[in-house]
């Protein structure tokens, strides 16, 4: 690693993971943190239930986008990180770092959408903090939210062993958010259908965990995309995953834009999609259940756990060849030709 922090250390891919493992865990290691889940899950002494705690900072540009803004993202992002570990989100903290000169109307819009998103996700903001930094010392507004939730034991999937033959499911078409934001930054005029997939996943995910006791892993596929999540699973459980390109749902506009930009949607960020591992005998029922929700009606089985003791991820391409599928390396940038 170089001796300076570079932007790629925050990309959510391998560099971020290396930073966490080599620099943070070295000093901060404990059994809860070491699990490296989206939320830390802990027990309350003297009580039968568990809690989950997560935190996330939102430093995005643009701060307003189609189907959302930084406010809505900072609520749903944290809520999603809680629900994927089986936690019902309850309370959020809200930390605002505002750059001097931000238009008060923009701030009002953001707070308003925080309020709407919190209502939708049934969480309350119960504490907060505001700081203003000098012009050029920030980028309009940064938001940190910390969320806490309660984990009922039947939703806690962490100790269920992943096995050969288990099925990999994605909850819908992938890559929307990342590809859309890139088009936005390129100032490319886009149709109405081209937008972020930002959504609150808690209802559908918790509902699934209530119904299916063979769900063995859930993660929302944000930065680093589905490919990075798959690699995390295969590393964590020391197993081989094979996914099929033809089965991976991708919207037409995402496909077209990603060809032009030279970016594979499998590495592109999502803000309303999750990856689940479930045993084969419950997979079809889970798909039936997911099809009832507009958010997950296009969920699909994209692959299988094909082997144990070999931490590898493979993609079978649409022309029938098989190759390794790596996690995201470095930053995602449009191709130069």
């Amino acid at each position: 690693m170089s001796n300076l922090i570079l932007l790629s250390h925050g990309s959510g891919g391998d560099s971020t993971r290396q930073l966490i493992e080599k620099e943070f865990l070295k000093f901060l290691s404990n059994p809860i943190l070491n699990e490296l889940l989206d939320s830390g899950v802990f027990e309350i002494p003297g009580s039968s239930f568990k809690m989950a705690l997560t935190t996330d900072s939102y430093v995005i540009s643009p701060i307003f986008f189609k189907n959302g803004d930084i406010g809505k993202l900072s609520v749903f992002g944290t809520v999603n990180d809680l629900c994927v570990v089986g936690a019902k989100p309850l309370f959020l903290s809200l930390g605002l770092i505002i750059e001097e000169g931000l238009d008060i109307n923009d701030l009002r819009k953001i707070i308003n959408s925080i309020s709407e998103a919190a209502n939708e996700a049934k969480v309350k903001i119960i504490t907060g903090d505001t700081k203003v930094v000098e012009k050029n010392k920030g980028d309009k507004i940064f938001i940190n939210t910390t969320g806490i939730g309660i984990v009922e034991s039947h939703r806690d999937w962490r100790d269920r062993p992943v096995q050969k033959g288990d099925v990999v499911i994605v909850s819908g078409p992938i890559g929307d958010h990342g590809i859309y934001i890139m088009l936005e930054r390129l100032s490319i005029q886009t149709d109405e259908e081209v937008k972020s997939d930002l959504a609150n996943l808690s209802e559908v995910v918790l509902g699934a965990l209530d119904r299916f006791d063979q769900i063995k892993f859930v993660r929302d596929a944000t930065r680093g995309g589905v490919a990075t999540v798959l690699n995390e699973i295969s590393q964590k459980y020391n197993l081989t995953i094979e996914v099929y390109e033809e089965e991976i749902p991708v919207r037409e506009w995402v496909k077209n834009a990603s060809e032009v930009l030279g970016i594979d949607p499998i590495y592109s960020a999502n803000e309303g999609k999750f990856v689940m591992i479930i045993s084969q005998n419950q997979a079809q029922d889970l798909l039936n259940y997911l099809s009832l929700y507009p958010l997950t009606k296009d969920a699909k089985i994209i692959g299988y756990v094909t082997d144990i003791n070999k931490p590898k991820t493979y993609l079978v391409t649409r022309i029938g060849t098989k190759r390794i599928l790596e996690s995201l390396k470095g930053d995602i940038l449009p191709r130069i030709c």
């Binding site: 030279g262 391409t317 022309i319 060849t321 190759r323 191709r335």
Partner: peptide
């Protein structure tokens, strides 16, 4: 062209 190189590898051609 580099894009061809990339696609040839990516599709295991």
């Amino acid at each position: 062209c580099g894009t061809h190189t990339h696609e040839i590898s990516r599709y295991g051609i």
